[in-house]
Every structure is written in structure tokens, then in C-alpha cells.
């Protein structure tokens, strides 16, 4: 299993996808840095580190995370199909479940690397720009928010995995991610936002509650209910993926 993980890591490291996604992940701190500098200039007040990092995290949770992480996940799971490698791996023999689990682990590590890239990028720009309120405590608080967002993005990748292994191409999972993103924009200002799994990175992963988008107290459900829905949805897709991987001809 460790060997398989090592091999999977090597394959990702040698590809351009991680670098490409890292550039995408850096968009969040970079764009928000431009906005923050603009705000400083217009309002004449210093932007706080906490506010800047929250905004960057929200940018990932709401706008780029689903697509960026979906792209990375698709790459990891689709590669063996597009390179016609599945039959060669399975006759080594590598068991389907070991392959599946090792790829999930690579996705988790890859998403962590991308989250870390965004976080460190934001921290670096904050220090360079002299944003106020940079203390060990605020850095740790911001770090925790990024970790929370990462943690809820992971189960959201399971439907992407299912679609990738079933359709065995890039188009279907990326289209799915785009649709999930569009629906998120639609439900964003709806009272039912907590019922939508893709709202989890916002509701759980950021400090910016729906009050920013909704009238206070109008939201149906709570972030906890949202997590329960996310767990149920993700576990179902995980189960379906496992059944598919175990029973279908993958070559």
C-alpha cells in the first residue's frame, strides 16, 4: 500500500497538474491582495490580516475550490484510463481497492498541498504588505479555517471520483464540478443553503456565516445539518464508487 502511494505521489509530482493547480490556488491570495490594497487606498485604513485571510479562504470555498480541486481529483483518477494503464496495473497485480485508496490518499495530500500553497501565499503577501494584526494567534486561527475548508472539500471530491471512474474522461467530472458551482451561486442567497452539500466549505470552512448573504435567522437548517447531509451524500457516492470499481471491467 505504501509502495502504491509512493508510486502515485511520484506520478503526480512528475506531472504538470500540481504546478498548474498551485498557480490556481495562488489566485485566491493574489486577487484578494489586489482587492485589499485597493480597499486600503480608497478607505485609508489598514486591512487586517484576519479579514484578508478570511476573504481569501472564502474565495477558495465559494469560487475556485470546487473547480480546482475537482480538476486535480479528476486527473488523479482519470489518468490510468486516458493512458490505457489500468489493465497493466491490475495485472501486476495491484488490487482495485488498494489502487482506489492510494488515489484517495493522493487526492487528500494534493488538496492539502494546494490549501497550504494558498495559505502560505496569503501569509507571505500579508507580511510583505504589512497588514495589521499578524500574531501567532491570528495566524493559527486563519490556518485552522483553511484546514476546516480542506477537510470539508475532501468528501466533496467523492462524487467527482465516482463520475470519473464511470465516465473515464475529463469532460464529465469537470462539467459536473461546474454545475455544482453554478448551483452553489444560485443557493447562496437562498434560505436552503444549508441543505446543499457544496455549501459546506462556506458554512464550515469560513467564519463568514450566511448572515452576510441572508437575512439573519432565515436559513433553513444549520451548518451541522449541512455536514450531516454532506456525509450522507459523500458516503453514498463512495460506496457506489467502491462497488463500481470492484465489479466492473475497468479496462
Amino acid at each position: 500500500m505504501l509502495t502504491l502511494l509512493r508510486v502515485e505521489m511520484m506520478k503526480v509530482r512528475k506531472s504538470a497538474i500540481l504546478k498548474l493547480c498551485a498557480v490556481g490556488a495562488l489566485c485566491a491570495p493574489l486577487l484578494n491582495w489586489v482587492i485589499a490594497l485597493n480597499m486600503q487606498q480608497q478607505q485609508g485604513t489598514s486591512v487586517t490580516f484576519t479579514f484578508y485571510m478570511e476573504q481569501s479562504n472564502l474565495f477558495i470555498a465559494m469560487i475556485i475550490g470546487t473547480l480546482l480541486y475537482g480538476l486535480f481529483t479528476t486527473y488523479v483518477f482519470e489518468r490510468e484510463f486516458s493512458e490505457d494503464m489500468m489493465k497493466h496495473l491490475l495485472t501486476v497485480p495491484v488490487t482495485r481497492m488498494h489502487l482506489f485508496i492510494s488515489k484517495l490518499m493522493v487526492v487528500a495530500l494534493g488538496l492539502m498541498a494546494l490549501t497550504l500553497t494558498a495559505f502560505l501565499g496569503g501569509l507571505l503577501l500579508s507580511v510583505v504588505s504589512g497588514f495589521s494584526g499578524i500574531t501567532v494567534n491570528t495566524v493559527l486561527q486563519a490556518g485552522l479555517q483553511y484546514v476546516k475548508a480542506w477537510a470539508v472539500f475532501l468528501p466533496l471530491m467523492l462524487p467527482v471520483v465516482l463520475i470519473t471512474v464511470v465516465f473515464r474522461n475529463f469532460v464529465a467530472p469537470i462539467a459536473f464540478s461546474i454545475i455544482a458551482e453554478i448551483i452553489l451561486f444560485v443557493v447562496m442567497q437562498s434560505q436552503y443553503i444549508a441543505l446543499y452539500p457544496w455549501a459546506a466549505p462556506i458554512l464550515t470552512g469560513t467564519n463568514i456565516l450566511t448572515d452576510a448573504f441572508l437575512e439573519p435567522g432565515t436559513m433553513v437548517g444549520t451548518p451541522s445539518i449541512n455536514l450531516v447531509i454532506l456525509a450522507g451524500f459523500s458516503l453514498t457516492t463512495l460506496l457506489l464508487s467502491v462497488v463500481y470499481m470492484k465489479t466492473q471491467d475497468l479496462t
Binding site: 506520478k11 512528475k14 506531472s15 504538470a16 489518468r79 493512458e83 490505457d84 494503464m85 489500468m86 489493465k87 497493466h88 495485472t91 501486476v92 497485480p93 479496462t251
Partner: peptide
């Protein structure tokens, strides 16, 4: 399969390796 070597259909490889 520890005693069997195979090439089935087109030879697949990781192209960027």
C-alpha cells in the same frame, strides 16, 4: 499473476515519465 507477465492490447505507459 506473480508468475504471469502480460501485455494486453495497446502498450500503455505514463507518457510524461
Amino acid at each position: 499473476l506473480k508468475k504471469v507477465g502480460t501485455t494486453i492490447e495497446a502498450p500503455g505507459f505514463y507518457g510524461n515519465l
